[in-house]
Simulated assay, not measured.
Amino acid sequence: MEYITPILTTQRLILRPLSVEDTQEMFHNWASDAKVTKYLTWAAYQYEHEVKERLRFREKRY
């Protein structure tokens, strides 16, 4: 089964699937912060390469 994630666009916001190109921003803006990830199903990332690997995995599943 193939999943297609729609891109939703408004005047002020674009919601789209994450991609490997988002690695640095994701890591530095929120994915490495334990306060932000406290209630998620995974712990804060320690290294940027971990985020990249996770995003590669997700891209394959999109």
Rank of each mutant, 00 (worst) to 15 (best):
A44R: 00
R16P: 01
L8Q: 10
K52A: 14
V51E: 01
T23H: 10
H49G: 05
N29S: 11
T41D: 14
T10N: 06
T10D: 12
V51D: 00
I4H: 12
F27K: 01
Y39N: 13
W30K: 01
W30L: 03
Y45W: 03
H28V: 06
E2K: 13
Q24A: 07
K35A: 14
L40M: 14
K52N: 05
A34V: 08
L40H: 09
T37M: 12
K52C: 04
L13M: 15
I7H: 03
K38T: 06
W30A: 01
E21C: 05
A43E: 14
Y47C: 13
N29F: 06
Y39T: 04
K38A: 15
L40F: 15
T5R: 10
Q24P: 07
F27A: 01
Q46F: 05
V36Q: 00
V20N: 00
P6E: 04
A44H: 00
W30Q: 01
R16D: 02
E50I: 03
T41N: 15
T37V: 13
Q24G: 07
T5M: 10
N29R: 12
L8Y: 11
A44L: 01
A34N: 10
K52Y: 09
L15G: 08
T5S: 09
E50T: 03
E2G: 12
S32N: 11
T5F: 06
L13I: 10
Q11I: 10
T9C: 06
P17W: 02
